[in-house]
């Protein structure tokens, strides 16, 4: 199997689905001839034709609104919002329309749409190219929210998202497009090809939505994370020398609560890791669920490590980013409690 980085894996997923299903079409800003600012749609227009992968006006509400109409017709649109930070103009179409159409029409009209969008910081993108808005989508009834952390999962989850009959928000951690990132920004960048999950099959396969992955087994403490933070969690566990179990949630909604509960019941301790701002973040939901379901197994208060409640500051990126130092501190607090 060829070694793929996450961009190539996502490109392969789109290529496979364009070839497999004539109802799949891709559009968004700069995705056509040019192949997207992060190159995820590179070569797809040339290979599959102008009407299968094309450029749109800069209008996110128009992109998502049109995709909803296409979904209602019976197509399976995959749209790209160039940065998650640009998705807010489409928020009404996502929240009030895509999310609710099946419900409000009693199943008559549906939106089998996938919205791909790069999210997260660590690339010196400043406050408008670094945000992690996942909680804005997990809070909405009717949307599925998916965040891959490796090339293998990215391809399998994206194919599963495209084949899903409900709208899926597919958040791509752009800091790890080209290689895993353990949070040590001062260390040399690692390419994906040294990572086992860069072994990506060329053909069709899926990673099911709603299933978490235990990426490191351990007995002392559970770390819940997703996206870029999975790699930070793994590095932190190694560096702290703590026998941590690291769970990559992969799908935030629907959440694989069973895997989470089984792990916390085993370890009795839990650290929740997210890059997004702390307050009302998805980590708060996780903390509440762990408390509800695992209270009598908990040996220590649940710890949350997150971005600070400020906009993502350009010059202070590494003060903002919840890196290994903060994760290890949280793990130690939980271990000592």
């Amino acid at each position: 199997m060829p070694a793929m980085n996450m961009i190539q894996a996502l490109n392969s997923a789109l290529d496979v689905m364009l070839a497999r299903d004539p109802n799949v079409l891709i559009f968004g800003e700069d995705v056509g001839y040019f192949g997207g600012v992060f190159r995820v749609t590179d070569g797809l227009q040339k290979k599959h034709g102008l009407t299968r992968c094309f450029d749109t006006p800069i209008g996110e509400a128009g992109i998502v609104g049109a995709a909803i109409g296409m979904g209602a017709y019976g197509l399976r649109p995959v749209v790209e919002i160039q940065f998650a930070d640009y998705i807010y103009p489409a928020y009404d179409q996502l929240v009030s329309e895509a999310a609710r159409l099946r419900y409000r029409s009693a199943g008559d009209f549906t939106v089998p749409m996938t919205v791909r969008t790069p999210y997260g910081g660590g690339i010196f993108g400043g406050q408008t190219h670094s945000q992690s808005p996942e909680a804005l989508f997990t809070h909405v009834a009717g949307l599925k929210t998916v965040v891959p952390s490796t090339p293998y999962d990215a391809k399998g989850l994206l194919i599963a998202a495209i084949e899903d009959d409900d709208p899926v928000i597919f958040l791509e951690p752009k800091r790890i497009y080209n290689g895993p990132f353990n949070g040590h920004h001062d260390q040399p960048v690692q390419p994906w090809n040294k990572h086992p999950a860069s072994d990506v099959p060329e053909g069709h396969y899926t990673v099911p939505l709603g299933k978490a992955n235990v990426v490191r087994e351990g007995s002392a403490i559970t770390i819940l994370s997703y996206g870029t933070m999975v790699h930070v969690a793994l590095a932190s566990a190694e560096e702290a020398g703590i026998d941590a179990e690291v769970i990559d949630l992969r799908t935030l909604l629907p959440l694989d609560l069973e895997t989470v509960v089984a792990s916390v019941e085993k370890t009795g301790r839990c650290v929740i890791l997210q890059e997004a701002t702390l307050t009302s973040g998805f980590g708060a939901e996780l903390a509440a669920l762990v408390q509800e379901h695992c209270f009598y197994h908990l040996e220590a208060p649940i710890e949350r490590v997150a971005g600070w409640d400020t906009p993502y500051p350009h010059a202070f990126e590494w003060d903002y980013f919840p890196g290994p130092r903060r994760v290890i501190e949280a793990m130690r607090r939980a271990m000592e409690a």
């Binding site: 609104g65 909803i68 649109p77 179409q93």
Partner: peptide, 10 residues
């Protein structure tokens, strides 16, 4: 309005 346009595009 944009949904109708999307349906028509489809």
């Amino acid at each position: 309005f944009p949904q109708a346009v999307g349906w028509a595009m489809a």
